[in-house]
Amino acid sequence: MARQVFIEFNGKMLRVEYTSENRHIWVYEQEENGKERRVPLEIVPLGGGVYLAFYNRSPLLFFVRNDKGGVEIQTSHVSLRARIRRFQPKENRQSENHSIVRAPMSGTVILVKKEEGEPVSEGEGILVLEAMKMQNEIQAPIPGILKKLHVQAGQAVTHGMPLFEIVRTETR
């Protein structure tokens, strides 16, 4: 599982999932027609909240800052406001009672924070995966019980390998 973000834009929900491999960022962008496309992305910071992105190889200069209730994104030709949500909308989440979390990238598990059978809350860190000198905390996508741990500290994992499983517990 890669990093997944939902954005509310023009009243519609967009899903952006991104992952890094070999120092490249890939964005999986879900189009309005439901199709998904994989786009390479490179970002160079220019300071003061200004970035130069190469999105699908096209240079794109943009400015971004937190705005009341969301984020303001500006290019020279548009200024728009969007809300970023990390989790899926509730109605989708509730149907998901069993979650298998996979490695979003190849790397090494450097820390496991939880044990099998422990209760976990949504967004709680389960383990830390290091890749390209960057540590990423892998979190529980749903609240529940940590049913199964597939990996242990020090273990090398490849992209897509299952890391752990969580089973939802009814708390409501």
Partner: peptide
């Protein structure tokens, strides 16, 4: 506003960058 290309890039920045002085 049409700015869909800018959004994923901004999100990647916004969700991964350290807080900037600004």
């Amino acid at each position: 506003p049409e700015g869909r290309e800018a959004i994923p890039a901004a999100i990647v920045v916004q969700t991964t960058q350290p807080p900037s002085p600004t």
